[in-house]
Design a protein around this nucleic acid. Structure first.
Lengths: 136, 136
DNA sequence: CTACGACCTCCAGTGGCTGGAGGTGCAAGA
DNA sequence: TCTTGCACCTCCAGCCACTGGAGGTCGTAG
């Protein structure tokens, strides 16, 4: 049955995975996606498995994993021999990174709010924000 | 009195402002800092005013302002004709960016925590984290 | 005067794409 | 069958904010 082999052009794949065509070519180039099959004319052709993999990558990116971290996750998945512990370790490591960034941003937020609170706006040709930044 | 004119080498300036020598040269190159004075031999020489400006830039960067935003702030300061309102507007705009990033990261944190909670670790050759990512 | 570290310029690389130039494939309508 | 026109192709440059290295020069302490 031919229709068990669903095929996509790169544009369709991009549509399904909600990313740009260039991004897919880029992933192929850096080895995150395998070299795609081609038509006689050289156009890339994809199947369900490719879509699944791309979805995985995009979901990981959406969670802030770097492409290097994703490469590791993919290696685990590709090998099929990953253990829950390995995956958990990577996840927790990434969670720690996220939490560090959160802490940084919260500090920035607080500092900006404090500065903004001092500033009355208006057309006064002076500003406590600048004063603080110039001579803290 | 000569010692009212404090002078720094680029290395000393970097030390004072807690940044790298290359970063200072980079700031000069892109016009964030003015072209430095030079010794006969071509080494850069800096004074108090340069240090103040660099401090300003580094503090802004520490708060997450982009170099483009800093360029605007510097133009205001340089003109000397800035108003509190202008500065407040830029500050609030940047605050909104920060808060958007915070919201993103909090979502990621939550998602990662949820996934990690499902994962029992250990040597089981399967993982709910991967399952979710592959087939959400 | 010599040694050595700090300085100089210029260029390439980072991450994760994005966009453009210039050319070709493919499918639908006339 | 031919043409139109869009989607595809490759290759290369650019974004941000630095960072690092190669290869060479300056300045100063001993």
């Amino acid at each position: 049955m031919k229709n068990s082999v669903v095929e996509f052009t790169i544009g369709e794949l991009a549509g399904e995975a909600d990313c740009k065509v260039q991004t897919i070519r880029f992933y192929e180039q850096i080895g995150i996606l395998p070299n795609a099959q081609r038509t006689d004319g050289g156009h890339r052709v994809y199947g369900r498995e490719d879509l699944r993999r791309l979805h995985f990558v995009r979901r990981c990116r959406g969670l802030g994993f770097s492409l290097d971290q994703i490469r590791v996750l993919l290696t685990l998945v590709d090998g099929g021999a990953y253990t829950c512990g390995e995956v958990l370790a990577l996840t927790l490591e990434h969670l720690a990174e996220i939490q560090a960034k959160l802490a940084d941003l919260k500090r920035m937020e607080q500092a900006l709010e404090d500065m903004a609170a001092q500033c009355k706006g208006g057309t006064i040709p002076a500003c406590p924000v600048i004063d603080v930044l110039l001579d803290a």
